[in-house]
Amino acid sequence: MNRTLYLGRKRVGIELRQFFRDRESAIFNFALPMILLVIFGSVFAEQSVGFGDVTFSQYFLAGMIASGVLYTSFQNLAIAIPMERDDGTLKRLQGLPMPKASYFLGKIGLVFVAYIAQVTVLLTVGVLFFGIDLPSSAGKWLTFAWVSVLGLLSCTLLGLAFSVVPKHGRGASAIVAPIVLVLQFTSGVFFVFNQLPTWMQTFASLFPLKWLTQAMRSVFLPDGASAIEVSGSWQLGLCAVVLVGWTIGGFILALLMFRWTPRGSS
């Protein structure tokens, strides 16, 4: 067990170096939400979302933080692991005296560190340029913490499971990115959720991102803004149930589906 943790910690370090040095992954998984925040925040800076003086840039910040969960975990892993399967990384690791759990610990550590760094930058940009007020109550930060942890866990496990879908590393981003984009459009990231058609809202409710964005709004928008939610409340309890459900489902899927070797090589 000690060895698993020791090597897991070593893997976190090596994963982080590779994540930030790879230009494609650093831009696509890490910098993208900041770029989008600056663009959307600037274009819709004054646009109201239908509650008091809450602007779309504030609404969008919550959506970008929720998207950050998806970028650093699901999108990152579902693209990086097929590449690792192609370029010999996974085969090499199998030949090393490393418990397999250390590899997964390394990925989880990477996801959490990358997310924390990303949120820190997003919030800094939000406070400095878009007049976002950081929540002052401990309760809201607690919500932020458990929503982030559950979101990262479920989406990390789903990313591990989904990493078997792209056949080759090269085409992985072309498969994964559209999925993330569709979820963002339907989950209240790029549009205000209560203005979407009902069928789209129902569709989005099946997946974690809708619940992540809603919970992040409960943290970063004023309390009364729950009036513009479809149900009129933040539904944090239901959000927890959905995320725990996806965490369990993701765990089972990852357990059943994860592959160390490319398809076709027995």
Binding site: I14, R17, E84, D87, P97
Partner: peptide, 30 residues
């Protein structure tokens, strides 16, 4: 596995690390 050394045929991994980082990291496993 700790008693084996394996040099596979085609490896393109670890491209983003330096030689020193990679060799040091691999020493950690043994």
């Amino acid at each position: 596995k700790a008693r084996l050394g394996i040099v596979l045929q085609t490896d393109r991994d670890l491209g983003d690390l330096t030689v020193r980082e990679a060799v040091r990291h691999f020493a950690d496993y043994f």
